[in-house]
Design a protein around this nucleic acid. Structure first.
Length: 773
DNA sequence: GTAAATTCT
């Protein structure tokens, strides 16, 4: 592999980096006259409402003289210079002043006054800050100094799409403000509320704020809400934007800041009644982009070749390669390792260390990507290098310093939803231009880097879409619709979303909720629906849980619901499949996978296993993390059940009906996910939409069950149903009579079969078939 | 006879 060869496949394109040249057309230029503004004395009126909740009020601190929404950057910097902490009057630490210096070097700091001028003069502000601008840590602090939420007895919220981000940013900002995390600055995520009575700045996940909105439609606890990373367009962010658009109308005192990393900010501006925009440049190193001259046929093979060429020809620096899934990544790791060994032997190459990275990898193994690159074989020899092969987890969630080369084949697995067959599935699809930029940017975090795109420049320009479709357009909306109803949105069709989903998707969701009796025929929330929306669960799971006391097994269904809302508990390493399967057989229940996983949970909770649960899980090929997480979820759900007075009951274990009751309770939630064996005897057909499906080979269920209920529909090489339990058709007619109205079924085997069962039941109970509803 | 991008309440 000669040097020239590596370059020949790539056409060099002249550009600094996707966006590091940020001569920004949207940059707001405002006259900076605020310095002369009167520096009001005394706290604003809000201080007089006499809230005695122990919040920091600024009294006795340098903030006491600040006039709300009329402060200046100069005032802020004077206050920050100490000597007392502006928030609580304490002495400031040495570390504080050290951090203060670096904070003032951040690009956002240069525009602090500009930001204040806009913030003070508008209710909604769109803020664009590229990577490295400091927006996530600094803007909320600027806001605190001007909004003085403590004087209103309120807080400033800043949302993040991911839990880790909310936690780590809060930690960092607490340090910057020299306060204890959880006091003036805190965070709130599921299972963990690190806030207290003094908290005035709260980082939180977007999902968490959405939950809060369900019980407080006006979000009255907040004086300013900052939606960060809005460009990621998570489902929760989209719903919050729709909601907040209405809330700002109802609450003129609420300020809203939409923060985004892309220049596609006009869309946000337009959506929010032409809100003003402020843009701040980022600070990253330039990344040189290379494209292939011709399209690649096999992107995995091309990617491996490119990684090896970089290793052979490029100067020191680590490599990040993006692939789409676990199997592809493990496969590429193996191949690169083999080739690298050969390069070391035959071409005197430096050592190459390869690390896989994907979501389901245990945390300890994920940590290994942060190991330093290997040292040269001998002092002064060819440099060692680290290669990380990752899914798009490294695109946003995880940042690896030291990456200088990025290899981007241009694909990722994405969720798609097909409302016609009501199936969410994962599909390998081309990424968007925004993703490609994000990936390239990963090469320029510590020094100038290079990005090798395994597609042509023409393809980048013409074939990639600008932005990935927002999640709301790719999801089953059943739980979203339920949430919206609970948020007080009555007219879903006219609810102003940035990207409204297809009418068919909405119809499907409404229909599903109606069958689940969460919405009545008028589309209004029922008592059951209200209760279901209190649980952080899919509607079918929530309904199953709420109905379970009627089947005398709510304790067991509570466990099962928790198990179904965490990742798979069975571990099946490629090297030990057979042993793993044998272990699974120990827990198998002949009536299906639900009862099997429940057996696992009960065994996990037994004193014997709890003696050393980690070891026990390892020995039994079970995921300790998943089971622990299930335990956590169970506790949270149990608290909600107690609060809402959903009874916790069990059928005695020695009762003949113990397992049958659980299977019947499953039907109460999942009656829409039932399949009947085909006349051929091998495959199954789903009731109502007549899809041919196969039992997933991982099921413990034998082939002799006529009717089965399933949890998941998996589209891979074939249509599989997974997590399957045998049910009786009588139960379907009994528990879900509206859905199993035999007359509504289209002609076919399912209908005939159901009719036969119905007649039999009617004969037995003495009713005439005709008298049935 | 076998798959699971990612994230969230």
């Amino acid at each position: 592999m000669a040097d020239g060869e590596s370059k020949s496949r790539f056409k060099r394109q002249k550009m600094t980096d996707d966006g590091s040249d940020r001569a920004n057309p949207y940059l707001a230029h405002m006259h900076n006259g605020a310095e002369e503004r009167d520096q009001g004395v005394g706290l604003s009126d809000g201080h007089a409402n006499g809230h005695s909740n122990g919040r920091a009020t600024g009294g006795g601190t340098s903030l006491a003289s600040f006039k709300r929404h009329a402060t200046t950057s100069k005032q802020h910097t004077v206050a920050e210079d100490g000597p007392a902490n502006p928030l609580n009057g304490n002495n400031l630490s040495k570390r504080y002043f050290g951090i203060l210096k670096t904070r003032r070097d951040l690009p956002v700091h240069a525009q602090r006054q500009e930001f204040l001028d806009m913030y003070q003069n508008t209710q909604v502000l769109v803020f664009v800050g590229e990577t490295g601008s400091g927006k996530t840590t600094q803007i909320p602090q600027f806001v605190i100094y001007d909004d003085l939420p403590q004087s209103q007895g309120k807080m400033v919220a800043c949302t993040q799409p991911r839990r880790v981000a909310a936690m780590s940013v809060a930690q960092r900002v607490a340090q910057e403000m020299d306060v204890t995390l959880g006091e003036e600055v805190g965070y709130s995520i599921r299972f963990e509320d690190m806030t207290g009575p003094k908290t005035i700045l709260k980082y939180m996940t977007d999902g968490m704020l959405l939950r809060e909105a369900m019980n407080d439609h006006d979000l009255k606890r907040y004086s300013t809400i900052i939606l960060d990373e809005a460009h990621e367009r998570t489902l929760a962010t989209d719903i919050l934007m729709g909601l907040l658009k209405e809330v700002v109308r109802r609450r003129p005192d609420l300020k809203l800041i939409i923060m985004s990393a892309t220049l596609d900010a006009q869309k946000f501006q337009k959506y929010f009644m032409n809100a003003p925009l402020l843009a701040v440049p980022g600070r990253t190193h330039p990344v040189e982009i290379f494209y292939t001259a011709e399209p690649e046929r096999d992107y995995v093979e091309a990617a491996i070749r490119t990684v090896l060429q970089i290793h052979a020809t490029e100067p020191e620096g680590d490599i990040l390669l993006f692939l789409t899934g676990e199997e592809e990544i493990e496969d590429a790791c193996r191949k690169i390792n083999m080739e690298a060994d050969e390069m070391v032997r035959e071409a005197d190459a430096g050592p190459l260390k390869v690390y896989p990275l994907y979501g389901t990898l245990p945390p300890a193994q994920q940590q290994r990507i942060f190991d330093a690159a290997p040292a040269p074989f001998k002092p002064g020899g060819r440099p060692g290098r680290k290669v990380v092969i990752s899914t798009n987890i490294a695109e946003t969630s995880l940042t690896i310093d030291g990456i200088v080369y990025v290899v981007d084949p241009g694909f990722s697995k994405q969720k798609v939803y097909n409302p016609r067959i009501r199936v969410e599935s994962l599909l390998v699809s081309p990424i968007s231009k925004a993703s490609a930029q994000q990936r390239a940017g990963r090469a320029g975090r510590t020094r100038p880097g290079k990005c090798f795109r395994l597609y042509t420049e023409g393809a980048f320009k013409k074939e990639l879409i600008d932005q990935s479709y927002p999640e709301i357009l790719r999801s089953n909306l059943a739980s979203t619709v339920l949430e919206l109803k609970k948020l007080g949105i009555d007219d879903l069709v006219h609810f102003d979303l940035m990207d409204p989903p297809a009418p068919e998707t909405l119809m499907r969701a409404l229909e599903e909720l109606n069958y689940l009796a969460c919405l009545d025929d008028e589309g209004e929330l029922t008592t059951l629906g209200k209760l279901a929306s209190d649980f952080p669960l899919d509607p079918a799971l929530a309904v199953m849980l709420i109905s379970s006391p009627e089947f005398y097994c709510s304790n067991e269904i509570l466990s099962l619901t928790s198990l179904l809302s965490v990742p798979q508990v069975f571990v099946r390493p490629a090297a030990a499949r057979k042993r793993a399967d044998e272990m699974k057989d120990l827990f198998a229940h002949e009536d299906g996978d639900h009862l099997t996983v429940l057996n696992v949970y009960h065994a996990f909770k037994s004193p014997a296993a709890q003696e050393n649960p980690k070891q026990w899980c390892h020995d039994h090929f079970l995921s300790y993390r998943a089971l622990q997480q299930a335990d956590n979820v169970r506790l949270q759900l149990k608290r909600i059940m107690e609060r809402e007075e959903v009874e916790l009951v069990s059928t005695p274990f020695d009762d003949k009906k113990y397992y049958e009751n659980i299977r019947r309770a499953l039907v109460a939630g999942f009656f829409m996910q039932v399949a009947k064996k085909d006349s051929g005897g091998k495959s199954y057909v789903t009731v109502k939409d007549n899809q041919s499906v196969l039992l997933h080979p991982s099921t413990v269920l034998g082939q002799d069950s006529e009717w089965v209920l399933y949890n998941e529909f998996v589209l891979t090489s074939k249509n599989y149903i997974r997590n399957v339990t045998a049910v009786k058709p009588e139960w379907l007619l009994d528990i879900a009579p509206t859905y199993y109205d035999v007359d509504s079924f289209s002609k076919g085997e399912v209908k005939t079969s159901l009719q036969r069962v119905k007649d039999k039941v009617n004969r037995r109970t003495g009713y005439k078939a005709a008298s049935g509803r």
